[in-house]
Amino acid sequence: MSVTPSPFRLHRRLLLGAALATPALHAGRAQTQGEVIVRTPGGSYDDVMRRFVYDPFTAETGIRVTVVAATAAKLIAMFRANNVELDLIDTGDAQLLTLERLGALAPIAYDRWRWSKPEDITRQVRNPHRVGNFIYASVLAYNTETFRGDNHPKSWADFWDAGKFAGPRMLADMASGSANLEFALLADGVPRDQLYPLDVDRALRVMTRIRPQIRRFWDTGALAAQMLSDREVVLGSIWNGRLQTVIDSNAPLAYTWNEHMIQVQSLGIFKDARNVEGAQRLADFMLQPQIQAQYAKALVFGPTNERAFESYTPEEAARTPGGENSRRTGFYQDVAWWHENRDRVSRTWSRWLLR
């Protein structure tokens, strides 16, 4: 029985054939041509990255960038089946850590960077097999018509105070990546620097107290933004980028930076990728300060290259995750703890939801 090759394999074979047919006189140029296939979050993110990263990279190197959608489960399945059909992975740091522990990722070639300097990358996100390409945050958002002036929740303890700050609420579900156990522990008086290892049982006891006021546990950023926009809820946790888009559309919403959770989107490269070298070059190109500042500002995320902040105004820096203000009032999510405990927490969370 004949098997039709996938479009990725056909395309790669055509490119390889073209390279082999190129006269030796043009070998130098042939080395700069080809394609890097990138896993991305999709949507408007791709439009921003195409404008500020992918097209400029192609103009600089001759390497075309193709974006595809792929879940974490699909990425793992690709690796286990020895059928890797993409090169660079742009996804949450926790998902990349899972792939790293499976032995799926190539080392980041920091020693060969020519556009970026490794020492300029924030230390917390510079790892041997993955490197952060932007910072985002989970923040406490509220409706400014419900909570007017200075009479709004300023901490997770306030969020849990349904008597003083009444109204329907939302929090993240495990399906979003992780449940907001950290916020429950903060509400119960645990200091930010003593959250990990998370006391899951304690966190769920605290969750039980607020559960009657929770309209829904959201599983996507789009749902969280919609619930706030439609006033289905008047306060809750949400990713800052999703929230800022709604605020910029004149929705009566605001948020506090106090006790926000800093999270990381990272780059990783499949060790069995067809174009490891091209993926390494794209990662290097993407993280240079002037490039990163452009896409981070457009997406309302924070840069991981410290020098990118040189092009920020004080107002821009003040609302940027990972910046000075953010580090003073927030905390980094411990993705290693979540990796090691996700299955246990998922089972416990599922049982708690059924009570």
Rank of each mutant, 00 (worst) to 15 (best):
residue 7 P to R: 08
residue 8 F to K: 02
residue 10 L to D: 12
residue 12 R to G: 10
residue 16 L to F: 15
residue 19 A to Q: 12
residue 23 P to C: 02
residue 26 H to W: 10
residue 27 A to H: 13
residue 28 G to I: 03
residue 29 R to P: 05
residue 31 Q to K: 14
residue 31 Q to C: 10
residue 41 P to M: 07
residue 43 G to I: 08
residue 46 D to C: 09
residue 48 V to I: 14
residue 49 M to K: 04
residue 52 F to Q: 05
residue 54 Y to P: 00
residue 57 F to E: 07
residue 59 A to G: 08
residue 59 A to Q: 12
residue 62 G to W: 00
residue 64 R to Q: 14
residue 64 R to H: 14
residue 67 V to N: 03
residue 71 T to S: 15
residue 77 A to I: 03
residue 79 F to K: 03
residue 82 N to H: 09
residue 82 N to M: 01
residue 83 N to K: 00
residue 87 D to E: 07
residue 91 T to I: 08
residue 93 D to M: 07
residue 95 Q to R: 03
residue 95 Q to H: 11
residue 100 E to F: 11
residue 101 R to S: 15
residue 106 A to F: 01
residue 108 I to A: 02
residue 108 I to V: 11
residue 112 R to C: 12
residue 114 R to H: 14
residue 117 K to Q: 15
residue 117 K to R: 15
residue 131 V to R: 03
residue 134 F to N: 15
residue 137 A to S: 13
residue 140 L to D: 06
residue 142 Y to E: 00
residue 143 N to K: 03
residue 143 N to Q: 05
residue 144 T to G: 12
residue 148 R to W: 06
residue 150 D to H: 01
residue 152 H to N: 08
residue 154 K to A: 11
residue 155 S to D: 12
residue 157 A to N: 04
residue 161 D to T: 06
residue 161 D to C: 07
residue 162 A to K: 12
residue 163 G to D: 13
residue 165 F to L: 07
residue 166 A to E: 15
residue 170 M to T: 14
residue 173 D to W: 05
residue 177 G to M: 07
residue 179 A to Y: 03
residue 200 V to N: 08
residue 204 L to T: 02
residue 207 M to Y: 15
residue 210 I to H: 08
residue 211 R to N: 14
residue 222 A to N: 03
residue 222 A to I: 01
residue 226 Q to T: 10
residue 238 I to M: 04
residue 247 I to V: 14
residue 250 N to L: 11
residue 261 M to I: 07
residue 268 G to N: 06
residue 269 I to H: 05
residue 271 K to I: 04
residue 272 D to C: 08
residue 273 A to Q: 03
residue 274 R to F: 11
residue 279 A to F: 02
residue 282 L to P: 09
residue 283 A to D: 01
residue 285 F to L: 00
residue 286 M to I: 01
residue 291 I to Q: 06
residue 292 Q to M: 09
residue 293 A to K: 06
residue 294 Q to M: 00
residue 294 Q to A: 06
residue 299 L to D: 03
residue 301 F to E: 08
residue 304 T to H: 06
residue 305 N to E: 07
residue 306 E to S: 12
residue 309 F to T: 05
residue 309 F to V: 02
residue 310 E to R: 09
residue 317 A to L: 00
residue 319 R to S: 12
residue 321 P to V: 10
residue 322 G to C: 14
residue 327 R to N: 12
residue 330 G to E: 05
residue 330 G to C: 09
residue 332 Y to R: 04
residue 334 D to Y: 11
residue 339 H to A: 05
residue 339 H to I: 01
residue 342 R to W: 15
residue 342 R to H: 14
residue 344 R to L: 01
residue 346 S to P: 03
residue 355 R to L: 05
residue 355 R to S: 14
residue 355 R to P: 12
